[in-house]
Amino acid sequence: MSEWFAKSAAQAALTDVPEGRRWVLRGGDAALAAAGAAFGASLPAQAGGVARVAGTPRAALWLGPDEIWLGTSMDDGAALEAALQTGLAAHAHSLVDISHRNVALELSGTHAAWLLNSLCPLELTLEAFPVDTVTRTLFSKAEIVLWRTGEHSFQIVLGRSFRGYVSGLLAEVSRELAAA
């Protein structure tokens, strides 16, 4: 895909994020607290918050007041799933595997936010959208989950059937970079 981003990878590059495991956890506060214990870090409680478990590929993303996405690597998947099931056994909750529902793209480079703002209506300055902020939003007509992983890098998580649409639009917009 990077050939579309012709001018310079420093400006922008779009790559696939390696497959991992991902669950949607929904439930009450007690369930979320129990899940945090199993997960290895308190789950984010603030809108847009991200919690990571240091030294692991685990990350928890706040998508709603009762909706947390839990993600990890393929290798760690079974272990995390088992821990969650054990930890959550006593609490009403919903844990649903969505590892295959979405795919993730990594958009990086100095113009990453610029590219996104072609069709994403959010303010993406570092001040308004700091590193490790995540939210569901829109990119043109596709719903995406946007996670700022660095000053100049974003993970875009989207329904797998929308991948061609979103990457096609980003490629179209990136032509402006190449010509600029």
Partner: peptide
């Protein structure tokens, strides 16, 4: 009600 919904259209 203690029930939660998750879209799995694209999971399967």
């Amino acid at each position: 009600l203690q029930v939660w919904l998750t879209s799995t259209t694209e999971q399967w």
